[in-house]
């Protein structure tokens, strides 16, 4: 199975590549539209700010390419956020595949931002991606969050309830880092590899 990991900028992408290799795949880290279109699975990682990630995708001519993909695509952390319409972070327009806007987590007394650490997921909908994951713990690091909606497969809570795992057609995403979420994270990645081509 061919797996393309999209170069969306940011320095720490190699942990995603290492996690995919631990599952026995040979991921290709690429900004080449042809490689991405031809891959069986596409992973959209991303760390840092939404605006600079979108700029990187645009500079590589990849925004339309990603929007038109029909194979299973998994956005991780910022990569998941990029699937949405827009983000309050620098008021950035995103890929527009999921109709919602990301907002900053609320400023509340005693609530630390960024939401950094292990949290459990809840209300997990039945889906090939979430099989076996209900109630598991995952590693989150983020300051902006996606609201809960039709696209939500699972939610988590930090000051408010937000989307932890999402799906819209062939586009999937996790707000947490499966590559750094021990066995639960590996299970999610394995589930993603096992999703039948759509």
């Amino acid at each position: 199975m061919s797996v393309a990991v999209v170069n969306s900028g940011g320095a720490n992408i190699s942990s995603v590549l290492h996690a995919l290799k631990r599952l026995g795949t040979e991921p290709e880290f690429t900004a080449d539209a042809n490689v991405i279109r031809a891959a069986d699975r596409v992973i959209l990682p991303g760390v840092g700010a939404a605006g600079s990630a979108m700029e990187t995708l645009r500079a590589h001519g990849l925004t339309e390419v990603i929007r038109s993909l029909t194979q299973p695509v998994l956005g991780i952390c910022l990569g998941m956020q990029l699937l949405f319409d827009s983000s309050a972070e620098d008021d950035t327009r995103l890929l527009g595949l999921i109709p919602a806007r990301l907002e900053r987590l609320p400023d509340k007394a005693g609530l630390r931002i960024p939401h950094m650490g292990w949290n459990a997921i809840r209300n997990t909908a039945s889906d090939p991606l979430t099989s076996g994951l209900a109630g598991k713990w995952f590693y989150f690091v983020h300051s902006y969050a996606a609201p809960v909606g039709d696209w939500t497969l699972s939610s988590s809570t930090h000051g408010q309830t937000f989307s932890a795992i999402v799906r819209k057609d062939n586009f999937f995403g996790s707000q947490f880092h499966p590559e750094r979420s021990a066995k639960g994270g590996a299970e999610l990645l394995r589930n993603f590899m096992g999703i039948p081509s759509l």
């Binding site: 630390r112 939401h115 950094m116 650490g117 292990w118 949290n119 459990a120 809840r122 997990t124 209900a134 109630g135 598991k136 713990w137 989150f140 809570t157 930090h158």
Partner: peptide, 13 residues
């Protein structure tokens, strides 16, 4: 699901 849900993000060791 039966797993107890956290009040908030876990304290880290």
């Amino acid at each position: 699901m039966n797993t107890p849900l956290p009040v908030r993000v876990a304290r880290r060791i």
